[in-house]
């Protein structure tokens, strides 16, 4: 029982990180057909923002030492600002370009950001010990779980509910949903393209910041490509879920998280290192059965 619940918690907390990352990517894809590779670098930068800029491999905490709430607000503000900056400088001039061009542009932005990080912080891994209290275990109904996992899962649930409420209840959320279905029609009704897109980037950046904090606590080390594994997992999650579907992105994220833990548990020790290969192989199998993903989005399909 202990074992099963432990695995469940592992799967849920890993799936949470993937789902939050996939959401950030899916929102942008839904609205502007951008597959944003640079999303991973926003996560990375959120983590680097905790420390003093320096190429010295021994990291010195900076924002990471502030009171918890201040740290959270500061990191979110920085990442959101950066997300909007990326939009203004790189993606806005390319608005309306086809998805391939946008994706390749995001690849260039990502490469730029990673190398900028190397320039400032150096390429060696840095140890970052944020909120060590979260590493403790707590007993929940007789089962011992890591506090971080509980925080991750609860945060994700809260954010998912918050996003759902935002999309359902607020005017901007309504406009975002309308725009992701038919952007031009929304504009004919006076919906401001710039506002909706900026809002999407801001939300995407906010999610990246949260993932960044949770992941940095879990990992304890940061590198210039810290966010890349997350963005890769989130990419396949959005494809499995169905490109452009917000719900699909969440489902896909959790599915990839569960697949990870599943293979971690069932693979013999000698093959554990190959876990990612199994996970991604599984993803390809799922796509063989459902090439359009779990949730098909009509506006993405082409009509004759």
């Amino acid at each position: 029982m202990q074992g099963f619940i432990q695995h469940l918690a592992d799967a849920l907390s890993l799936g949470s990180l993937f789902a939050l990352t996939a959401l950030g990517i899916s929102l942008l894809f839904g609205i502007m057909r951008l597959v944003n590779f640079a999303h991973g670098d926003l996560i990375t930068i959120g983590a680097y923002a905790l420390i003093v800029p320096s190429s010295n491999p021994n990291a010195v905490m900076f924002i990471g030492l502030w009171p918890v709430l201040d740290t959270i607000i500061a990191i979110c503000a920085i990442v959101v600002a950066l997300a909007i900056l990326c939009e203004r400088l790189a993606f806005k001039p390319m608005r309306g370009a086809n998805p391939s061009v946008l994706m390749i542009a995001s690849f260039a932005v990502s490469y730029f950001l990673q190398n900028a990080l190397i320039m400032i912080y150096g390429s060696r891994p840095k140890g970052v010990n944020l909120w060590p209290a979260l590493a403790q275990s707590v007993s929940v109904g007789g089962v011992r779980l890591q506090l971080l996992q509980i925080v991750t899962i609860v945060t994700t649930l809260v954010l998912l509910c918050g996003l759902t409420l935002f999309l359902r209840r607020s005017a901007i959320g309504r406009q975002m949903r309308a725009a992701s279905e038919n952007f031009m029609m929304a504009r004919f009704l006076g919906v401001r393209a710039n506002l909706v897109i900026a809002a999407a980037f801001a939300i995407s950046g906010f999610f990246a910041a949260v993932v960044s904090l949770l992941y940095v606590v879990q990992r304890g080390t940061i590198t210039y490509d810290f966010g890349v594994p997350l963005v890769m997992a989130a990419f396949v999650a959005t494809v499995i879920g169905g490109m452009g579907s917000v719900l699909g992105a969440v489902l896909g994220g959790f599915l990839v998280g569960f697949a990870n833990v599943f293979f971690q548990v069932v693979l013999p020790m000698s093959l554990r290192g190959d876990r990612d290969a199994f996970v991604y192989g599984f993803v390809i199998l799922v796509l063989l059965v459902r090439p359009a993903g779990l949730i098909k989005v009509k506006s993405v399909q082409e009509r004759v």
Partner: peptide, 16 residues
């Protein structure tokens, strides 16, 4: 907007 309710479709028109 097929995913939005009829009421939401109407409100979009007035959002500005």
């Amino acid at each position: 907007f097929s995913q939005l309710t009829v009421g939401e479709n109407l409100l979009i028109g007035a959002d500005m």
